[in-house]
């Protein structure tokens, strides 16, 4: 079972993600827990930022296999979610980062 606070790990703040948030349809990118479902992500964003979500698109990035000499390991997999808000809603970029200030970066 996923608690709402555990669903979203951190927002993605890059040039591309900023561009998405500045478009006609406000879209925000988050790194989420691998087991999080779309409805859970929707509820988490609505609760955390007080907005209405139109849709959620998710994708799973498989961790790359890394080899160091004879040892083989892999980087952790993660789920990325692109959350589209309903018209008239938007999230302030400073608020977006403030909520996750204590979260370790990727």
């Amino acid at each position: 079972m996923n608690f709402l606070a555990d669903v979203i790990i951190r927002p993605v703040i890059t040039e591309k993600a900023t561009k998405l948030s500045e478009g006609k349809k406000k879209k925000y990118v988050f790194i989420c827990k691998l087991s999080a479902t779309k409805p859970q992500i929707k509820r988490a964003v609505e609760k955390l930022f007080g907005v209405k979500v139109e849709k959620v698109n998710t994708m799973i990035y498989r961790g790359k296999i890394k080899r160091r000499g004879i040892f083989i390991g892999h980087r952790p997999s993660f789920k990325k979610a692109i959350v589209t808000l309903k018209p008239g809603y938007q999230i302030d970029i400073t608020k977006l980062t403030e909520k996750f200030i204590s979260q370790p970066s990727k």
Binding site: V12, I13, T14, E15, A17, T18, I93, T94, T97
Partner: peptide, 16 residues
């Protein structure tokens, strides 16, 4: 700033 090309980061992030 990681994730942005030099000079492309928004002022809000620079300010933070």
């Amino acid at each position: 700033i990681p994730g942005f090309r030099p000079g492309k980061a928004p002022l809000e992030i620079i300010e933070r």
